[in-house]
C-alpha cells in the first residue's frame, strides 16, 4: 500500500541572484514497509525533497499524494494534521523543546493530537523504554548527550504512531559510535512496520536501508 507518492516534483527557489532549482522532476513512491535512504552531495536537494514528501513545503510543479490525498489541494491545517498524526520527523539538530523534559517532549505531539491522558502516559513510557531512556524521563535536553537527545527525538517522532518516518541527516551531529546506535534504532523502527525515508551522508546508515537512491543537482537517480 502506498503511503506517499511524489510525481514529477520540481521545486524552484526564487533568489535575488536568479532562481535556483533544488529538485528537478523527481518521482518517488514510498510503500508500507519501505526503508529508503537518499544520498548525495550537500546542496543537491535531498532535504528539499524530504520536506516536499513531509508536507512542510509545496512543489513549484508536480504533485504529492499522501495516502491517496492530493497534498496540493489540502489546507495548511489539513497538512498540519497529516504531519501530526501520519508523519514523524527526525531532524539533524534534534529540535527538542529545551524547557520540557524528555517525557514531556514525547508527550507534546500526542496531547496536540488529542490522545487521552492515560493512553499518553502508557505510550510515552513504552517509547522511552523502546529508545532505552526510561531512566532519563525527567531529564531536560540540556542534561542529555547528543545521542540521547536524538533517541528522544525518534521517540517523539513515533509518538502518534506515524505511517512514515522522515529523517534529515539523523546522525549528522553524532559521533560514529552514537550514530551506529541511532542506525540500529531505525532498523528496529522499520522492523516494527514503520516506513522510513532518510537523507544522509552516512554511508553506514544508508547501507542499512532496503532501497538506496542518489540525488545529484536536484535529480533523483
Amino acid at each position: 500500500m502506498t503511503i506517499v507518492e511524489a510525481h514529477a516534483l520540481t521545486r524552484v527557489f526564487p533568489m535575488s541572484a536568479g532562481p535556483v532549482t533544488a529538485v528537478r522532476d523527481a518521482s518517488l513512491r514510498v510503500n508500507r514497509g519501505d526503508y529508503i535512504a537518499i544520498g548525495g552531495p550537500s546542496g543537491c536537494g535531498k532535504s528539499t525533497l524530504l520536506h516536499l514528501l513531509g508536507c512542510v513545503d509545496t512543489p513549484t510543479s508536480g504533485a504529492v499524494t499522501f495516502e491517496g490525498r492530493d497534498v496540493g489541494a489540502l489546507t495548511d491545517s489539513e497538512r498540519g494534521r497529516i504531519r501530526l498524526t501520519r508523519i514523524g520527523f527526525v531532524f539533524q539538530r534534534f529540535f527538542l523543546l529545551p524547557m520540557l523534559t524528555a517525557w514531556e517532549n514525547i508527550e507534546l505531539p500526542q496531547a496536540e493530537a488529542g490522545v487521552p491522558a492515560a493512553e499518553r502516559r502508557e505510550r510515552t513510557r513504552a517509547l522511552l523504554e523502546y529508545v532505552e531512556l526510561s531512566g532519563r524521563a525527567d531529564h531536560l535536553p540540556s542534561q542529555l548527550s547528543g545521542g540521547e537527545m536524538q533517541r528522544v527525538a525518534v521517540a517523539r517522532a513515533l509518538a502518534n504512531r506515524p505511517a512514515l518516518l522522515l529523517a534529515d541527516e539523523p546522525t549528522g551531529e553524532l559521533d560514529e559510535e552514537t550514530g551506529e546506535h541511532i542506525a540500529a534504532l531505525f532498523d528496529r523502527v522499520h522492523a516494527d512496520g514503520t516506513a522510513i525515508v532518510l537523507v544522509t551522508h552516512n554511508a553506514a546508515l544508508a547501507q542499512r536501508a532496503k532501497t538506496r537512491r542518489i540525488m545529484r543537482s536536484g535529480v533523483l537517480q
Binding site: G80, I82, P109, E112
Partner: peptide, 16 residues
C-alpha cells in the same frame, strides 16, 4: 526560529 519551525513541522498548530 528553528524550534518553532520544528514544532510546526511536527504538526503543532499555528494557533497553539
Amino acid at each position: 526560529l528553528g524550534e518553532v519551525a520544528a514544532l510546526r513541522a511536527l504538526g503543532i498548530a499555528r494557533r497553539k
